[in-house]
Every structure is written in structure tokens, then in C-alpha cells.
Design a protein around this nucleic acid. Structure first.
Length: 495
RNA sequence: GCCUCCAUAGACUAGUGGUUAGGUCACCGCCCUUUCACGGCGGCAGCGGGGGUUCGAAUCCCCCUGGAGGUACCA
């Protein structure tokens, strides 16, 4: 049996962390088994579905690098196409298909029209709650005569269509992750399968689509567990083959409640904005609910595909921990080759207007030397401008605290040292890290002072702060001219 | 209220009847070091509670507690 799985988001918002992980697990399971990963847009919520959401979701999955085999496609201009033979992959384009199947149920007496008003239903529900009873539809319209139906229709009342649930026995299924789950059918009512607008409801459309698209495994969030018995009833009513189910646990916020805006960013694309590498996010998400016995933490995309095992997923909800994500992000940044990282860094420097667009290869080679000094320090890509600006700007910004601590305190000493070092540097013919280090150390020895007493003031005088790359290396990259100028400037301003 | 799922350190997890309960992040300490990082070494910290079953339970069963999800003409 070839595996066919799908990710079926409803376009009522951006792609969030939970959805991303569901998509990822589907993707990994498909790739691992050499199966197909299908993307289907469940846009039957006429009120909340938007085109922007469709785009945001598509971009989000694309950014994560989860290519899908069938479903909507999107090109550089943002126009939407489609690929795969089982489409269309937008449910609202499939209404004719659903109509057919609804009619079948109606003809076979397995479904019926219900004319009860939402107000009436709401009132009954409230009443049931008051009496501590399960709010269940009372089957009022189950046995309407054709005359009664005609009567309602003549009044212009649009019915919903309900599935007739016999309420006998149990619905049992074996979930790949949760094990056996059973529901008492008598607790379920005659649920709505088509809204009065004529659009099918989620529980109906998924079943038709999953069956027609030959989905072999339904991998989705465990918030869908309670929908599953209804869906199984429909599979049975149509005589469709029932797919395997894998309900993956939810991702929770730091306080253990459902992940929401309260917990900060939940949108995948927001993580891009925050400076995360997609591979780091993917790696983190993979680990949130799945692990290998040897406790491996870092996986390449290929390794993930190779090692991911749907059957070894955790069955309990996991709290999203951005500390660990951040650690992984650092790991991925450090693992980049200098060339790769330079490309990434340049785009962030461009956005921050620290370098111009259309850099020449020579510019890039020079930048590479600068970037090499700080790559290991980057945790968020958004750190990049702040880490490099002192190397790139003509005018440095002085951090007042650092200036106070290193230059102003012991002013006479630092003044003398800076003046003398300025002279020494002016006289230095070969301006390399090695020569600079020699110079600094011999100066310290001659004057019998600690090396730190020179290093620190020079660092602040040439960079404006105490934190930064290895002193001699960045001085070399900066070049003699700039170093001299900065020292002169500092002496002018603070002494 | 009712239904369903879940329960190992602060977080993610390994573990399927006998382990000094293992790993990772975070945190703390030490080392490396001109700063910041990186890296290395070490440490703190856990089986929610109560009953069973068993010679023996983190592991199997029951109850409780706690958490999550559902209970829609939303998905």
C-alpha cells in the first residue's frame, strides 16, 4: 500500500506552530515511506476563510522546506495553480462532488433535512446544560413527512442536512499514536453534514475528500479525536475504506495552556522575522513530540526523513520552549559554511541599510572577513546588524556605560596608553593581527602593565563597546587608516 | 455537567517488570580566554497521590488529583 497523507489547513489565519508541526509530521511520514504528501485547503468556513490566509499558509510551508506532491501551487508572483490528479484541492471548488454524496445519503434514508432554527437549537442546548444533560439534538425533524418538508420549503426556510445516527454500539478505532479509542455511539447525535447555505460541514467534507483522494493515513492534531467517530460513521455509511488515524498531541504555551497570542509569536513566518533559520525550526518541531532512542538532537533534513517514525511519537502534549529553539538556531548558524552564512548575513545587513544592495564580489570578499569574526556569536539572525554595525559604519556609536567603565575611570592612565598606542600604530608598517598583538604585548611588558589595561581601552576607543570579536583580528580587518582615525576621534571626544 | 485524551526534573524526552532512572535545553560552578561568545569538564534537579497484581514496579490494573481537547449550520 502506498502511503498518501495530507495536511489540510483551514485558511482562517496564518500558519501557526501547531499546524506547522502537523504538516511536518505528515511530510516526514510521507517521505520516509516513499509516499505522497498532499496539501488540501479546507475553506468551507465561508465567513472566516481568506485568500491572504491561503497565501500565508503556502508561504509558511514553503519556507520550512516542506514540498508537497499534490495541491495548490504558488509562483513567484503569488498566483495560485494546482498539481496532482485528485484535485481541485480547495474544498469550495469541490461542492458539486459533495452534493452528489449528500444526495446519495438522502436517497438511502441515511440523512435528512432539518428545519429547526439556530435560535431554537441554542435554547434547547442551554436547557440541557441547565439540567446537566448532554446537549444532543432531539431528532425533531427526523421523520418529517414530505408534506411538512414542502411546507417548510414553501416558507423559504433553508434546511440543514443531518446524518442519521442510530446510536447503537460503540465506534472503536486504533490510533497509531494513542492506541485504542472508543466512543459510545448513543452519546452522539444526528450531526449536521450540510449547512443551510448548502456548504458541507468539516466532518462531511473531510471524509469525502480523504476517501476520494485515497488518503491512507490521517495524521492530524488530537483536537480532532472527538470528530473521528462521526467521520467513521460516514465512512461506513458510504462503504469507504477507513484510513488509519494518527492523532498527534497539541503544542502548548509556556504555562501549559493552548498556544495563543498570549504566549508571543505563534505564526511560523513570525519566526522568520525573528531571525530563525527554517531548518532550526523544523528540527525543533520534529523533536517536540518525537525522539530517537539514542537521543540525537540535531538532524539534517535527510536524516529527519530517514529516521522519523510516526509510530514512535509521544502521546502527551508538549510545551513549546523557545530557549531550546534558540539553542538549535545557534547550532544551525554555526554549522553554516562561511560562504553560506555570508549570503544570509548580507541580506540582513542590506535590510538594515548597513551595506548597499548589489555588492561587488570584492565587497563581498571583504565583508566575509568581517562576518567570519562574529558568526559563532549569532543566535538570532536579527542580531546581525547590531553585531557588525561598528565594523561597517564610519562613525561608531559609543556605549556610554562601557565608555564610563573603561575610558573615564582611570582617565589619566587610559589617556596616556591610548596616545602612545596611537603613535605606535601609526608607526606600524605591517598591519596584521599578528604584528598588532606583538606590538600590544611588548608595550605592556615595557611599561609593566597588564595586557588588559591596553586591550580594553583600545577596544572601546575603536569599537565603542566592550563586547566584540577578537581585538587584533578586527583591527586588522578594519585597517590602519580607520583604526587611527577612530583612536584620534576618541581622544578628541573624551580627553 | 458529559465525552475523550494525557501524566518521568523548570522544558523536551529515553525507558515497556529487576537500570546507581539515561540524553538534550535552561540554570549553577570550574577550565579555556584581551571582552563577548564558542568549546571542554563537572553539578543541581524527576517517575503527581493512593490502592492493588507481583519475590520485585516509572513500567500492568483500579481510584483520585491535575492538565489538555471536544461538546457549533468553526475547522
Amino acid at each position: 500500500m502506498t502511503v498518501r497523507v495530507r495536511f489540510a489547513p483551514s485558511p482562517t489565519g496564518f500558519l501557526h506552530i501547531g499546524g506547522a508541526r502537523t504538516a511536518l509530521y505528515n511530510y516526514l511520514f510521507a517521505k520516509h515511506t516513499n509516499g505522497k504528501f498532499i496539501l488540501r485547503i479546507e475553506d468551507t468556513d465561508e465567513l472566516r476563510s481568506t485568500d491572504e490566509s491561503v497565501l500565508a499558509i503556502l508561504y509558511g510551508i514553503q519556507w520550512l522546506g516542506l514540498g508537497w506532491d499534490e495541491g495548490p501551487t504558488i509562483d513567484a508572483n503569488g498566483s495560485i495553480g494546482t498539481k496532482g490528479e485528485f484535485g481541485p484541492y480547495f474544498q469550495m471548488q469541490r461542492t458539486k462532488i459533495y452534493d452528489e454524496y449528500v444526495q446519495k445519503l438522502l436517497d438511502e434514508g441515511k440523512a435528512y433535512k432539518c428545519f429547526c432554527s439556530t435560535e431554537e437549537l441554542a435554547a434547547k442546548r442551554e436547557q440541557a446544560q441547565k439540567e446537566h444533560k448532554a446537549p444532543k439534538y432531539d431528532n425533531k425533524c427526523r421523520n418529517l413527512s414530505t408534506e411538512q418538508i414542502k411546507n417548510f420549503e414553501n416558507q423559504g426556510i433553508k434546511p440543514v442536512i443531518r446524518f442519521k445516527n442510530d446510536g447503537i454500539g460503540e465506534t472503536i478505532f486504533k490510533d497509531i499514536i494513542k492506541g485504542e479509542i472508543r466512543f459510545d455511539n448513543s452519546l452522539l447525535d444526528d450531526f449536521v453534514i450540510v449547512k443551510s447555505s448548502g456548504v458541507p460541514v468539516y466532518n462531511f467534507a473531510v471524509v469525502i475528500d480523504d476517501a476520494l483522494m485515497e488518503i491512507s493515513h490521517v495524521v492530524r492534531g488530537d483536537d480532532h479525536i472527538s470528530n473521528t467517530p462521526r467521520q467513521i460513521m460516514l465512512y461506513k455509511a458510504f462503504g469507504f475504506k477507513i484510513p488509519k488515524f494518527a492523532h498527534i498531541p497539541m503544542i502548548l504555551g509556556s504555562d501549559g495552556s493552548r498556544l495563543s497570542k498570549r504566549h508571543g509569536a505563534t505564526s511560523v513566518l513570525a519566526y522568520r522575522e525573528m531571525g530563525f533559520l527554517p531548518d532550526a525550526l523544523v528540527n525543533y518541531l520534529a523533536l517536540l513530540g518525537w525522539s530517537t532512542q539514542d537521543s540525537q538532537q540535531i538532524f539534517s533534513h535527510e536524516e529527519l526523513v530517514q529516521k522519523f517514525d510516526l509510530y514512535k511519537c509521544s502521546s502527551s502534549a508538549a510545551i513549546f520552549d523557545d530557549k531550546k529553539l534558540l539553542w538549535l538556531n545557534g547550532e544551525y548558524i554555526r554549522a553554516k559554511s562561511l560562504d553560506e552564512f555570508t549570503e544570509i548575513a548580507i541580506s540582513w545587513l542590506e535590510d538594515a541599510k548597513l551595506v548597499s544592495k548589489n555588492l561587488t564580489d570584492v565587497d563581498k570578499e571583504n565583508l566575509k572577513k568581517i562576518i567570519a569574526l562574529e558568526q559563532e556569536k549569532v543566535k538570532y539572525l536579527t542580531d546581525i546588524p547590531g553585531l557588525f554595525d561598528f565594523m561597517l559604519k564610519d562613525e561608531i556609536e559609543y556605549n556610554s556605560e562601557d565608555v564610563e567603565k573603561v575610558l573615564i575611570k582611570n582617565k589619566e592612565i587610559s589617556n596616556k596608553i591610548l596616545k602612545e598606542m596611537l603613535e605606535n600604530i601609526r608607526n606600524l608598517e605591517v598591519f596584521t593581527a599578528e604584528k598588532l598583538e606583538e606590538l600590544f604585548r611588548s608595550y605592556a611588558e615595557k611599561n609593566s602593565i597588564k595586557t588588559g589595561q591596553i586591550f580594553h581601552p583600545v577596544r572601546v576607543a575603536t569599537s565603542g563597546r566592550t563586547k566584540g570579536p577578537s581585538l587584533f583580528h578586527y583591527l586588522e580587518v578594519l585597517g590602519k587608516e580607520k583604526v587611527v582615525k577612530r583612536l584620534e576621534n576618541t581622544l578628541k571626544i573624551y580627553y
